[in-house]
Design a protein around this nucleic acid. Structure first.
Length: 526
DNA sequence: AAGATGCCCAACCGCAGTCAA
DNA sequence: TTTGACTGCGGTTGGGCATCT
């Protein structure tokens, strides 16, 4: 059965007779080679690791070694009492679903949990103890469901959730073998009870967010039956579909006052929502990345810890951004984890860890102003190396969001293919607000502004056909009316809207449209 | 001191699921 | 639809170390 059981395998210096691949314990040299390779190329494609590194290990062995030993987010050492209790709770709930249990216990692998359980199992059997401690009952299999289907979880005090800090929502109405919805207890309102997961939560195509800016997403790529995840819009991937959160599932807004030490002295923010950079409180392993979380999801027990640059590690290749945002006045870069199918938090990196071509730029100190009057508002070109390949407009940042914190960097939408050739065309006006709401780039530019980007469009430099109706522009008070377009000055004033400008309109909930009309022309101005 | 036993845990295997060609 | 590569998962084995006899 095991490789070690074969005398042939063990002979010949642990070399597999088939492909000359090595078996048995890994050496430090092999670990280093594998770690370096994965750091550079990211995990996956394990079968080519051997070809590219010369390691005499099969892909499977490499994957296992990385997953169980070399991953930077692993905790080492004995299971704490809390972890032990959690394993017991989870086993009562799930049975031998080691991988699922590992997802609930950060830093522990399925193998570790399995080993722990099997050891414990043997011990308790030998001394004649019950498998589960008093108060935790075996899973009760619903007679209607198969064993692999859903179970009701019985807990001593019949309260919401489990003592391990999770609430389990039983979806008895689920006829499609859908997962239970599990939420941390801290996210569950006191009056919430385990309940049937409403039909609309069951992996349908779902829409809309909650009243406080969160969306529950169907994790369409989820093959692990993980619970739905709740994320702020800004962290939403393009391919994710939001859904309505039923009233009873909505959680209390967690009001956590930002302690002074959390307030952006060390922490970078991503630009358009209030984010705080947190160290993972359960992280006792060095080289853990920081995590970035929106303020609204903070828990009381989370602490901001200062993390030294040397304690951070490179963001794996596959996590590195195609759509990177930077916080600009602190030496960190926040990466969008766009390929992250596990919906993990964003990563923050110190500049030193960022590949050179991604180096962010420093915002001149005089621009770190706490208040920037609108008339002084400026846009600055983002250095070319920060600009996004797929967006001809590249990135820009404005200093409007500088309210004691860093400036923001946002990506511009793609321009029309050839700006100069285009006639004024209303179809170019992007009126669909959802375009911007669903795109993280178009979150409100500043939490302070309490508005959102409503429209962005391009005024051609040389209109081929004079627009018949400028009423929209007049209504928006752009200063680009029929009259002044006909008597257009050859050289317009700075910041005056005219032909050839890309216009954005930021709509305010409590103000007129024209209050936040601006000009975006980062490629025309330095 | 030496062998026996128990425990821990790394590493393997086979199977099943997914996905792209 | 089929096939093969790749990946994830659960079960199992055996080496190494500590403790016991």
């Amino acid at each position: 059965m095991s490789s070690f059981s074969s005398g042939e395998d063990r002979s010949n210096d642990n070399q597999s007779s088939e492909n000359n691949l090595k078996k048995g314990p890994w050496t430090a040299e092999e670990d280093a080679i594998l770690a370096a390779y994965v750091t550079r190329h990211g995990p996956g494609n394990w079968n080519i690791v051997q070809q590219n590194t010369g390691l005499l290990r099969c892909g499977k062995s490499c994957r296992l070694r990385w997953t169980n030993h070399l991953r930077p987010d692993l905790r080492r050492g004995a299971f704490s009492k809390e972890e032990q209790n959690k394993v017991i709770q989870l086993h009562a709930l799930m049975g031998n679903k080691w991988a699922k249990m590992a997802q609930e216990i950060p830093g522990r692998t399925d193998n570790e949990i399995k080993n722990f359980w099997n050891t414990r199992l043997k011990k308790r059997r030998r001394i004649g103890l019950e498998l589960y401690p008093d108060g935790i009952k075996k899973p009760v299999v619903n007679a209607h469901n198969s064993e692999t289907n859903l179970v009701s979880y019985t807990h001593r005090d019949s309260q919401v959730g489990t003592s391990s800090g999770h609430a389990v929502f039983n979806n008895l109405g689920n006829t499609q073998n859908q997962p239970l919805c599990v939420q941390p207890i801290s996210m569950v309102r006191e009056d919430m009870k385990p309940c049937v997961v409403p039909q609309e939560m069951q992996r349908q195509e779902q829409k809309v967010g909650t009243s406080f800016g969160h969306a529950v997403f169907n994790n369409s790529g989820n093959t692990q039956n993980q619970p739905l995840c709740v994320q702020p819009f800004s962290m939403v991937r393009q391919d994710m579909k939001p859904c309505v959160v039923p009233q009873e599932m909505q959680r209390q807004e967690l009001k956590v006052e930002l302690r002074e030490e959390l307030q952006l002295s060390e922490a970078g923010t991503s630009s358009s929502v209030q984010h705080v950079v947190f160290n993972n409180p359960s992280n006792t392993t060095p080289n853990q990345p920081l995590c970035v979380q929106p303020v609204s999801t903070l828990h009381e027990d989370m602490k901001l810890l200062s993390v030294k640059p040397e304690e951070m590690h490179d963001v794996p290749q596959e996590l590195q951004p195609r759509e990177a945002c930077t916080s600009s006045c602190v030496p960190r870069v926040v990466f969008n984890n766009s390929s992250n199918s596990q919906n993990q938090p964003l990563y923050a990196q110190p500049i030193s860890m960022v590949p050179e071509e991604r180096q962010p730029f420093e915002v001149p100190e005089q621009q770190h102003m706490s208040e920037v009057p609108d008339q002084q508002r400026q846009f600055y070109e983002v250095p070319e190396q920060l600009q996004l390949d797929k967006l001809p407009g590249g990135c820009m940042y404005d200093n409007y969001a500088c309210s004691g914190g860093p400036s923001s960097v946002s990506a511009l939408p793609p321009l029309p293919p050839s700006c100069d050739d285009l006639a004024f065309d209303e179809s170019m006006i992007l009126r669909d607000n959802s375009e911007f709401v669903t795109n993280p780039c178009y979150e409100p530019r500043s939490p302070r502004s309490n508005g959102y980007l409503e429209s962005i469009f391009y005024l051609p430099k040389v209109p081929q056909e004079k627009p018949d109706d400028f009423s929209m522009l007049e209504e928006l008070n752009l200063g680009n009316t029929r009259e002044n377009s006909e008597q257009r000055k050859p050289e317009k004033e700075e910041d005056e809207v005219g032909y050839g400008d890309l216009i954005w309109i930021q709509k305010h909930d409590d103000g007129p449209y024209n209050e936040k009309v601006g000009i975006v022309h980062p490629f025309l101005k330095p």
